[in-house]
Design a protein around this nucleic acid. Structure first.
Lengths: 204, 204, 204, 204
DNA sequence: CATGAATGAGCGTTCATTCAT
DNA sequence: CATGAATGAACGCTCATTCAT
């Protein structure tokens, strides 16, 4: 129990550092954020941060990894929460838009500023991230398979279906973020859904 | 004529530097690539590089700007080359796949751990690049408008049609690059087209 | 108390750096003295020096400022120490000669190829230093005013009296330093005093 | 004759470079003025400047040396021009004030900015300059000796008389320049003369 | 364990000087 | 001789990391 309290405290501190680091990386980019500043802003000493994370690169990785698991969790929950395919997809889009909306700074960091982390570490992170993403897509495709079985969707590799819906939504949401506008859910989601479901061809 | 020879030589050298810088930035990231190394690898002195580009940042920007204009040119040409909408879109996808294929290192630099971010959108933080991309999309949407007028496509904002096709193709191509596979044109392009044109819904 | 020890240590180190910097600036000139060399000679790392002084320019300024306050203090004390005007001026000249004697390297740095430039005037480009010098002259002129009130001196702007005595002594002391001779107090001071008090005209 | 024309042309160009260099050194300090800029402003190529002066240090030396000879000439002429001692001294002060007035930028350079020239070169320059100055003082002291012989001045080493008058005038003129005021001849010269001639003591 | 002063490798950049044309 | 592009040594400075306290 004492250990458990210690552990809880340890985790709390670790998260505090990650939170500050995320904000600083996002605002100033990986290279312009210094360990000194992260230390000062998080009210720990540099040495203490090095007890939690063995290098600046590792700290960065953990920031990204934490966010990646967060969105993974959110999207899986969004899908699980609903019963019908259509509702699941709706909820997926809503949850994703919400995450992008709330994490604009991070998204910008993640998509734009990964320059500067040691290459091999980045690859390791990528592999891990890629595996997480791939697993999500596999999970997603199982859900979508059901749509095929139900004769809702046409015979298309369900992995691709997931990739497409994810890619389409990224396209619109990131477009928003770059324009520094709020994500207009009510405008984008119907377009995404319409195109995803019906394509662009005119039905004869 | 003498001036012209000088100018040509100047341009050749500038391109040589850009080529080396692109490779090093892509392989080692912006911050880990040093001016000294770029100088050594391009067989110029540091001072000479500073005669061509006034800072490391400017060199980086020029690397990106050159690539951006290159793909912009390629895609516009691909669209112009053909007569019918369908052929234009086919050609657009082919040209884009080709560019991604030939510039995997460069693409990886920008999309590293990102799935499906529009190439030029990523650059858009830089206004100049964003303008280029936006202009391309506007040009693209004019072409696509024709498809709407011709009753080929349904009534959808043609700017969105462009965004969607661009985003969809990015999704697949980058997915390939991250998997370090060759882009399987014959596999991806039909899927992209099918989904783009017909959506995923089963026709009743 | 602990803080006090820390602070004392801090001050000691700061002074050590200033001492080394002064010597190197004087011997090699500002631009030829490098931070690396100052670091090596003072047995600190470059980084540590930058913890004490935020740039090479600031370090230089502090070197000069320290010396300026030192001579200001010495001269004021020399004046305060004695009671009569004549003794005050005597003591002023003695203290100044002493300072120039002990700081030949430093003085040479500033007066190198200049004859007779008022020490503090030279610094005056820097407003802070000029203010210090001006305040000293004002203080000096108050003392000298007394000599006028006492009918010891003629009616001459006492600020000018101070300027003149300072300038005259600089002229002789720097002349010595440039000749790399010791300042011959016993030879110069009587001349300075005689000329200052009586001028050069023969009394009729 | 052809050689002579060539030589004249050569001298003219050399002076042109010296003029530009003087201005730039004075305005930007020795280290901030670049050979490139001196070349551009003087409308010669860098290479050509190196044909005239073998290094930046040498160019600087020549700038100073030229000015030194100029004031030496002016002061000697000012003294020679008049017949009586008093008029000679008057004229000396007037000429010197004029030179300081017209060369404020240079004076500032010379008295403040000699930091940065290679030490040994500076010493060589100093020796040469010192010799010039010493010779001037010897010449001056011969003139002043006459004043002693004529029972105008008291028995004071005439070399010191020269040193004092020069030092006194420097003190006032440089004080003006640092205050960035015009030299107030009508105010300063009477003070200098009065103090020089009569000292500060009240005659009983 | 926590601290944060100290470290110093390594960066971007400048500019006096050279030398092929 | 004149030119000015090319050179590269050397600088000031930063900041991730270490380690004595």
């Amino acid at each position: 129990m004492t250990i458990s309290r210690k552990e809880r405290e340890h985790k709390r501190q670790r998260n505090e550092i990650l939170k500050v680091a995320e904000r600083l990386f996002a605002r100033k980019s990986f290279h312009k954020a210094t360990m000194q500043e992260i230390a000062k802003k998080s009210e720990f000493s540099v040495g203490t941060i090095y007890n939690f994370f063995k290098s600046k690169d590792h700290l960065y990785m953990q920031v990204v990894w934490k966010k990646a698991r967060e969105i993974d969790r959110k999207l899986r929950d969004a899908i699980a929460e609903k019963d019908t395919i259509i509702e699941k997809l709706d909820n997926f889009l809503r949850a994703k838009a919400e995450f992008f909306q709330e994490n604009q700074e991070f998204i910008r960091l993640y998509f734009m500023e990964t320059q500067g982390v040691t290459f091999s570490l980045k690859q390791a992170l990528n592999k891990k991230l890629y595996r997480l993403y791939d697993e999500f897509l596999r999970h997603f495709s199982e859900v979508l398979s059901q749509g095929i079985k139900d004769h809702l969707f046409r015979q298309i590799d369900p992995y691709y279906l997931g990739l497409v819906l994810d890619g389409l939504s990224n396209t619109f949401f990131i477009h928003s973020i770059i324009l520094k506008k709020d994500i207009k859910l009510e405008e984008y989601i119907p377009v995404i859904k319409e195109i995803f479901f019906n394509g662009v061809m005119r039905k004869k």
